[in-house]
């Protein structure tokens, strides 16, 4: 998908596979974030959580995939920020959206979000540039 096809206000959606504990272990290894609330269920429950919690950064990475699909590989992401609004649990299906909010000469601003069913879990923003 290329940017030239994306109009201002247009939305791109990506639905990720359900989060698994295996994926969280892989992400822990790949990112170096070994907080046990992300893979050790008895530990997570002892912390007052109802289950194992996905890394917020994994949710952001899923939104990043949606962002890439929206802007195309010739785009360069100058700034990418996220606020984590609610937990994502094992088994959750994250749906990411990227909406082109502003488009200028060779650059654009996208509004990003992620939801699990009707629960908003992440809100974000990106500034991109096309060469």
């Amino acid at each position: 998908m290329h940017m030239n096809l994306l109009e201002e206000g247009e939305v791109v959606r990506l639905t990720a596979d359900p989060i698994t504990t295996t994926q969280l272990v892989k992400y822990a290894g790949a990112s170096g974030d070994f907080n046990r609330i992300h893979f050790d269920e008895p530990f997570a429950r002892a912390q007052g959580l109802k289950a194992v919690l996905a890394h917020g950064m994994l949710t952001m990475a899923i939104v990043g995939r949606c962002l890439e699909q929206a802007v195309g590989e010739s785009a360069y992401v100058e700034e990418f920020s996220s606020q984590f609004l609610a937990p994502v649990w094992v088994g959750d299906v994250v749906e990411a959206t990227a909406r082109l909010a502003e488009r200028g000469e060779g650059e654009g601003v996208l509004e990003l979000s992620a939801a699990v069913e009707d629960r908003m879990v992440l809100r974000g923003r990106a500034r991109v540039r096309w060469n």
């Binding site: 907080n35 530990f43 007052g48 890394h55 700034e79």
Partner: peptide
């Protein structure tokens, strides 16, 4: 996100890890 210091941040060491959560994150490239 994978660029982590070889030792834990000294300001995080005394904290209870189960109470640490991600709030906001930004990459400026």
């Amino acid at each position: 996100a994978s660029f982590r210091p070889p030792t834990r941040q000294p300001w995080l060491v005394p904290l209870d890890e189960g109470r640490i959560l991600a709030g906001e994150q930004a990459f400026i490239n």
